[in-house]
Design a protein around this nucleic acid. Structure first.
Length: 157
DNA sequence: GCCAACGTTGGC
DNA sequence: GCCAACGTTGGC
């Protein structure tokens, strides 16, 4: 792990793309497409770097939970799904000359043996200020503090 | 399915 | 630039 690597949490709805789907992907790698929120995009575009560590979170599922670990293997490049009129994330405002949305590639590192449910995380003192646990938090790409990341790894072992 | 908390859009 | 209306996210 690079010295200056940062930590992130990425949300996904397992019904559309789960960590199990990532495990079955070629090279266990996927492009993280479909992000259509400026703040989330800016994190991907301006701060996510190869080697950064990523927590994967299943949202809108029966038991919302952090389910595993991944790493950034390719930095920001245009999200081509924004150009596809048939894609649910189509954005006519994004052109090939001036792409509005970006994505990164992530590679699976591991699936936690036991997912860490939101309800459990709420009881952990070290995570009190975690963005994920903030009321009304909706960011699908969010930074995670080093201490938070380490506390979560500890819970997952 | 409900609804709180957001982000975006567009009239003025 | 304000802000109401609307759409979306996501836990419960």
């Amino acid at each position: 792990m690079a010295k200056n690597s940062k930590f992130w949490l990425l949300k996904t709805e397992p019904e559309s793309f789960s960590i199990q789907d990532l495990a079955k992907s070629p090279k266990q790698t996927t492009c993280w497409d479909g992000v259509r929120n400026y703040q989330a995009r800016n994190f991907m575009r301006d701060e996510m770097r190869v080697g950064d560590r990523v927590l994967l979170y299943h949202s809108s599922s029966e038991t919302p939970a952090i389910v595993g670990l991944a790493g950034v293997v390719r930095e920001d490049y245009p999200d081509h799904t924004a150009w596809d009129p048939k894609d649910s994330h189509y954005d006519p405002g994004s052109t090939k000359e001036d792409p509005r949305w970006v994505m990164v590639d992530i590679k699976l590192e591991r699936i936690f043996r036991e997912p860490l449910p939101l309800a459990k995380l709420r009881g952990i003192a070290a995570l009190k200020e975690m963005e994920l646990l903030r009321k009304g938090s909706r960011l699908s790409v969010q930074p995670v503090r080093k201490a938070e990341f380490e506390a979560i790894l500890k819970l997952a072992q």
